[in-house]
Amino acid sequence: MKALMSLGALIGVAGLLLLGGMIFDIVPSTTIRLVEGYMPMQLLFEVGCYVIGFAGLSYILNAMGMAIPRFWQGIGFWVFFLMYLKYRVYPPIPFSVRAMYGTVSLVAVFMWVSANEEDWQKFKQPIMNVLDAQTGMNKLLRYAYLFLLPILIGGFSYNAMMPKSEEPIELRTVHPAPPASTKVHGKTYTLQTSQNPYRVNTEGKYDQEYTNANIVEQGMGRLMKPNANPWDEKNQGYLKYVREGGEIFFQNCHFCHGDNLNGRGLHAFAFNPIPANFTDPGTIAQLQETFIFWRVAKGGIGLPNEGFPWASVMPPWEQHLTVDEIWKVILFEYWHTGYYPRTWD
């Protein structure tokens, strides 16, 4: 048990040193890389390691007779977590999300330190000591709080009320609800029921499962399925259409959406927000093919009211591409990213 706790303590100390280095800019945040494809779990795993590490550290210090008071354990962990979110995670997390996480972690710390009466008494003892002010130091602290707290609250109020020249925050609706149907090149398409005419098997029949089996495998590096190479000119059916869609993509779309379809094309950073990242599981992976068809055909100016603040510069591609070309380019986007279009069956 002691050995395990010692190991935990070691992890805790190492983690703290690393984070300290990141805070003071001695160590870059990317020292331990967030690995693409594993980032969300890596983050949770790291925080889990810290928790175990701190438990070990607390145990060892306790055994050495140098126990950290519960009050400082609670405050310390909360501050650590805020620092972790601010300095460890990259790219930077918007303040609104850090505020949410900060509040949850504060509640969690409160739940931990007050889960039983003994711990709660330990936690609030320093506060009670200052309030009771039985010693000179505590008296001094109490007077200090008497002055500092109103100043602090006043400062917050001033900061909150002071007119600012910053750009306002935006509640952008990235995927507004589509219309029931859309008219492209004179033909009406019902979005709930229409299908990509090129998602076909070798016999030319619409076949979702066949095409799903031939997409790029997800994961690190995104691997092409064996015997499913669309650049092989002998291929017919689905893979042939993927190739044709790819050609259209690289002639028209990749300047903004990037050659890896991650929204980082040549012109991407001229825009804010940058173009959609198709490799993100929150974009095309969440949507029906017909939704993409509508968005590609109508572009940014075709966004409905719900799409406020309409922050999209995508041209209405129906003015440049045929219906067939739009369907093919969508086929390519799904093939390349390894995602499956949403279906409702």
Partner: peptide
């Protein structure tokens, strides 16, 4: 938004 480099955060967006 600009500092994040896109509409979705690559870690938390998941």
């Amino acid at each position: 938004l600009k500092a994040m480099g896109g509409q979705q955060h690559p870690v938390l967006g998941n």
